[in-house]
Nucleic acid binder design. Sequence first.
DNA 1: GCCTTGTTCAACCAGAAGGTTGACAACACC
DNA 2: GGTGTTGTCAACCTTCTGGTTGAACAAGGC
Lengths: 130, 130
Amino acid sequence: MEETSDTPDDELDRAFLALADPVRRAIVARLSRGSATVNELADPFPISKQAVSKHIQVLEQAGLVTRTRDAQRRPVHLAPERLEALTAWIDRYRLVRESQYRSLDALLGSTGPGAPPHHHAPPPDKEHPS
Amino acid sequence: MEETSDTPDDELDRAFLALADPVRRAIVARLSRGSATVNELADPFPISKQAVSKHIQVLEQAGLVTRTRDAQRRPVHLAPERLEALTAWIDRYRLVRESQYRSLDALLGSTGPGAPPHHHAPPPDKEHPS
DNA sequence: GCCTTGTTCAACCAGAAGGTTGACAACACC
DNA sequence: GGTGTTGTCAACCTTCTGGTTGAACAAGGC
């Protein structure tokens, strides 16, 4: 069981943070139907183009979109691999594995922030998620 | 506007935002192996318990964890449904249809200044493709 | 009743996020 | 060459976030 097999913490940070904004999610949704330019992306939103440009930069730094150059236009394309990395992360924890692991790990030992936790062996409480 | 059927924007906001922090992701990872109390969760992190308590509140408001009461303890449990809602959202956009992708060139070529004619004929989905 | 454990509340602070406006670079068109 | 479109950069403002410390509340144990 490897955590973060190919996705560093920073990248997960940026990717989740990028999707934590409705404007950026709408941009992703729109890009999934085809690439678009900044103006096209900015059009449906009541905010300035500069703000949308910033959103796109956030998405780009998160690895969720890429950009090419076509004259003065900078078309934006969705980069689905990063989205798959997110589902990969989530899928590791969607399934709550209970009984057998609980005895091993109720506490933890060696984890700093940013590193996935390991296990220890202290007094587990017996609450199960309904 | 039929957002209420699936996952409202606010909930997605909170859920993605909650996962955009390495401490909170580590808490989720930890909880996937079994429920834990605030003290247990706070132990591996170099931050105060109050800070961890805040993180847990963020996760709770995001619907990612639930809490019960056990004497003076407040054990925290993972709530996998919300995680599945996130993968459900992502899965809508992971798949980029190639035909539209290819039509990028046509789009770029035809979208003139003044930008009136968007000629995307095959829009199978709107905001939420199933 | 009092003390200990577990958790939260309140006030506060530094830094980042998201928005604005204005100016400017790059390129196309006339 | 001048004009206009596309997009970004810079400065600025406001709000939110993540952290701190210190005190307070809740439930058992003595």
